[in-house]
């Protein structure tokens, strides 16, 4: 490719969990604006491989914005400057000569495994602690036996779009996962099927959230701005409301 962008990349490199890590600087040339951000990193990795330097480890899987595996703090913004996942960020959002700083998600609950790869198992454990409706296979009643008002079903769906990527935690100045927890609380709490466990769920999930070392929410809103699925801040209000009710009910 003759034309295209030339970029300076400042990338966090860390050989393992115990390594201190530091920012390394790389140059890439001839980057097409049609490339995705991760394809740009693929190009860099091919170059590194060719010159005998170990490629940069970063997570990605579906590369269509739905699995939540990709992460990356790009120039100080989780998933970069657009409201989408890193894998759906395209190089047309940058311009020739730009310097791009790429860091892993930073939170004590998300320890770095290598380079830009972090462990987000804490989010799984929050789900384990209550982010479900107990319905053993085979025990379900006929699906249409319980109607769900459409607006409640819509709200449940809108917040169930959370992909568990952790951008909310990465962006939050307090390292809180409240948006993640709130989205699940709201999703299950809006549905009639979610009522029986509603208040024990919120206490258990918030308890696990705190236990994992996430920070408390101060309602700043950077999480919602970073969320690639545009989950609104009102899920945190819902979370608080449900916890308040749980408190009243003696949970």
């Amino acid at each position: 490719m003759t034309d295209g962008m030339n970029l300076t990349l400042n990338i966090w490199r860390q050989t393992g969990p115990d390594d201190k890590g530091s920012i390394h600087s790389y140059q890439v040339e001839g980057i097409s604006s049609d490339m995705s951000f991760l394809e740009m990193l693929d190009v860099l990795n091919e170059q590194l491989n060719a010159r005998g330097e170990e490629p940069i480890a970063f997570d990605s899987d579906c590369r269509e914005g739905i699995c939540g595996m990709c992460s990356l703090m790009i120039n100080g913004e989780a998933h970069g400057p657009e409201v989408t996942t890193t894998c759906q960020l395209h190089m047309r959002s940058f311009k020739d000569g730009d310097t791009i700083t790429i860091e892993p998600w930073r939170a004590s609950a998300f320890p770095v495994i290598k380079d830009l790869v972090v462990d987000r198992g804490a989010l799984d454990r929050i789900i384990q602690s209550g982010g479900y409706i107990s319905a053993n296979t085979g025990s379900a009643p006929e699906a249409n036996s319980v109607p769900v008002p459409r607006d409640k079903a819509m709200r449940a769906f809108n917040v169930a779009t959370c992909i568990g990527c952790g951008a909310c935690v990465a962006a939050c100045p307090n390292g809180s996962a409240s948006l993640f927890v709130g989205a699940k609380i709201t999703h299950l709490g809006e549905l009639p099927q979610g009522q029986p466990e509603r208040y024990s769920r919120v206490v258990d999930m918030v308890g696990q959230h705190d236990h994992e070392g996430f920070g408390g929410c101060t309602n700043i809103g950077e999480c919602a701005a970073a969320c690639p699925k545009e989950i609104p801040l009102d899920v945190i209000s819902q979370l608080n409301k449900d916890l308040r009710t749980a408190l009243k009910q003696g949970h």
Binding site: A135, A140, A143, A153, A156, H187, Q193
Partner: peptide, 18 residues
């Protein structure tokens, strides 16, 4: 049936049915 019981938010009509 199973998925609805688990809280899968399928699209619904105004009457609340699937």
């Amino acid at each position: 049936d199973q998925c609805v019981a688990q809280g899968v938010p399928f699209a619904r009509e105004y009457g609340g049915l699937l």
